[in-house]
Amino acid sequence: MKKLIISIVLVNLLVACASEKPKETVAAPEPVAAPAPAPEPKAEAPVAAPAAPVRAEVDPLNDPNSILAKRSVYYPFDVAAVQDEDKPTVQAHARYLSEHANRKVRLEGNCDERGSNEYNLGLGQRRADGVKKMLELGGANAGQSESVSYGEEKPRAKGHDEASWKQNRRTDLIYAR
């Protein structure tokens, strides 16, 4: 068991290194040569780690340390453009989608409650559409993403304050399984 933990830590370290590469390659953690027990703990028998490393495809989507683990982008009040700090995230997802043509993602736009329900439905749609456009510019096919809006109908936090509102102004990227 100890060995398994160590080897997972090792994989994580490798991925961490990969994602610290210069910016232009932002999203693309290259396939990592992983020691036998791949990310899924119940994969193949736990063969002694150093022996005969197998080159396994690790889906970076499942890597909690990848930028792809970030599945929400956030907005200021009544703004629908993806903010600079979230652009690398969206671009990373764009690159991932372009490299995994069979993958599909659902973009759900949401808003805080400071608007009418219907206005917010339009604003949430505009937010999700903005992410969709950025995914397509980054190489994803149009058919790989679907943008919808919930307006203010599905708040993540329910308070009438900025602490809640800022969590509710977001687009979620939800991958189809």
């Binding site: 219907e118 339009g122 943008s147 919808v148």
Partner: peptide, 12 residues
């Protein structure tokens, strides 16, 4: 019956 069910949002 469904009146409008195009892609994106149909509302108001």
């Amino acid at each position: 019956m469904v009146v409008a069910d195009f892609r994106g949002s149909n509302s108001a």
